[in-house]
Design a protein around this nucleic acid. Structure first.
Lengths: 341, 341
DNA sequence: GAGAAACTATGAATCGTTTCATTGTTCGGT
DNA sequence: ACCGAACAATGAAACGATTCATAGTTTCTC
């Protein structure tokens, strides 16, 4: 990068001042057509490319936003990310996508990096609780919108889906299909999404007048396919009369893992075990047994979150924080259809 | 962002010069323990966070790399991205993930953005041909490593998988299972991955002594699930005696789409139609009918590419460009097992 | 106890761009 | 022919961190 071209070089070549070059770049109408032409030619000939760091340093605000998610390999998040990207790029903003693997240490490192970059704002699905770093960062002035997680108070924007309702929908459906022992697979419970879905499941059990023990909670250490397989292996160690006849998984990756493990061990779905997942990712309908799942408006989640962030970043004063909550929808497929047993 | 804290504020608070603050940050051993302590305290009290743009402007090189892929929603690329991220973050670099949707215009816009950011380097899976912008950008000094695409010459790093071999493996397998009319689904053919896989397929057909017409080429406009469904609908319009008995898809998303469409129209896989996909994404084995697929070392592809990029960026002189080519591996599952017909 | 060596801290210059007060020009109106 | 307005272009200051030559102290050695 020894000979990077700067405005100074362009100015020299076009025989104008650097201020004029900047004007051509930013307010071309203030420059006479003749000069503008000459400067443009110099830019093209030299292959000049603006240095965003310098612009940013002067301007004080950058053209990027940070998107911090739990797992980019989860299609739920890539769909959300596309929504974010659509909105952001329409506003001329770039997105830095960060992956925490549900680990606070990685989250922390990325938040530091994003703050050093002075990003315009951050969209984040926090791993576990909301960290001190996030609180501090917000206090210092970086706009933050919570994604797929409801803000605890009214002083912050968030975009989420009603997870309790979703859990309720899923388990009510299983109960009305005749199931009386239902497993909940998901974890860690420190994640609001997981605990809310579980809470919704409990509500459904209670409403149906079933004992609390009707819900068997199998906590996992992750929200991926591998964790789903492990969880099912655990459940299969239960005595027959205690074993569940259906499982509700906190997301579709877990559900796909559960499905794989069950098939491999010779169990039929839904005959021997019904499954309901969560997110309704595209692969859910294409699974070995098409998965019932609780659908979330993924793309819109991302779009709305980005819109809120941009609004907050643009008018620091006079911005009213909002907590948007979308409604989930149960999609019933073969994995949970009633079977004569 | 009115009251952002700068080194100046820290210096004032700790009653030292700005140079000393900088030394505490970058070469703490040169500062006496006492002063260091005082400065650190001031940093903590004021909540000072370095401004990366300013550092970068002075230093001349940034701490980010760009990763430009065709589709973040494709698990192949998210797995590659994780590989890239692992290596990059170990080297203290952040990754900006950009999504082109296979469109040159989006690719162009992102390349401009990345160059303005003065990224340390770029990893890219080009949409279609290698654009002028990419060539120029490289000429101006930004290191570029081609990802999942072999460099045309020896003057550039690339990491790819032998796609011709992969296509050959897939179709040879189908031929030896008795198929005599095989469809190839994929597109656009301007993409090297697609055309190479097709070329490999042709090689297999020729080697088996079959006529060229044994391969029915169905070009798609994308490499996603929807395109796979459309392609199958096209194929099903063929007269029975011309219709294929197997399809080889240029990636697994197409294959999943094909599988969905076939099932929906009442065809059985593999009895009525065999399928082989490409990439062996995790969902391939969990599909309605477990998919045969050509596996690529996705994670390693990303890791290796990032390593090459870092090497090239670190020693601009004395760097030897390398073209790494991995071997694909055929994984046979139910979707292409031989069936008595 | 003098001088050298080692250690600390300083502050001005620098990176590339934007901004804005200022200067220089042209032109229309009276 | 003069004035003021409108228009063009200028160049220095500013953004925040880093660097480096230099100045100021302390410590060590003979």
């Amino acid at each position: 990068m020894g000979g990077a071209i700067s405005v100074k070089d362009v100015a020299a070549r076009a025989e104008v001042s650097v201020g004029t070059v900047s004007n051509v770049l930013n307010r071309p109408e203030r420059v006479s057509p003749e000069t503008r032409e000459r400067v443009s030619a110099a830019i093209a000939e030299l292959g000049f490319v603006r240095n965003e760091s310098a612009r940013h340093l002067r301007a004080g605000s950058s053209r990027t936003v940070g998107l911090v998610v739990l797992d980019v390999a989860n299609p739920f998040f890539t769909d959300v990310a596309r929504g974010v990207e659509d909105t952001a790029s329409a506003a001329g903003l770039a997105v830095i996508l960060c992956n925490t693997d549900e680990k606070s240490t990685k989250e922390d490192a990325y938040l530091e990096l994003l703050e050093e970059q002075r990003v315009r704002g951050i969209l984040i699905t926090p791993a576990e609780a909301i960290s001190d770093r996030l609180t501090e960062l917000r206090r210092r002035g970086t706009p933050v919108v919570l994604l797929d997680r409801k803000a605890p108070g009214r002083d912050q924007c968030s975009v989420s889906v009603d997870d309790r309702k979703g859990g309720d929908l899923a388990v009510s459906h299983l109960i009305s299909a005749g199931h009386r022992r239902i497993a909940f697979i998901g974890g860690p419970l420190t994640m609001a999404q997981v605990s809310d879905r579980l809470r919704g499941a409990r509500t459904a059990v209670k409403r149906a007048g079933l004992p609390e023990t009707a819900l068997i909670v199998e906590t996992t250490v992750g929200l991926n396919v591998a964790a789903g397989r492990v969880a099912v292996r655990q459940l299969l160690t239960l005595a027959k009369r205690k074993a569940p006849t259906a499982v509700f998984c906190a997301n579709d990756l877990l559900a796909l893992g559960a499905l794989q493990e069950l098939s491999q061990q010779g169990f039929r779905v839904p005959a021997d075990m019904s499954i309901v997942g969560y997110d309704d990712i595209d692969f859910a309908s294409a699974a070995m047994v098409p998965l019932s799942s609780v659908r979330q408006p993924r793309h819109q989640l991302g779009r709305t979150a980005a819109e809120l962030l941009i609004e907050e970043a643009d008018k620091a004063v006079g911005h009213r924080h909002r907590q948007v909550v979308f409604e989930p929808e149960l999609i019933v497929r073969e994995s949970s259809t009633r079977v004569r047993r």
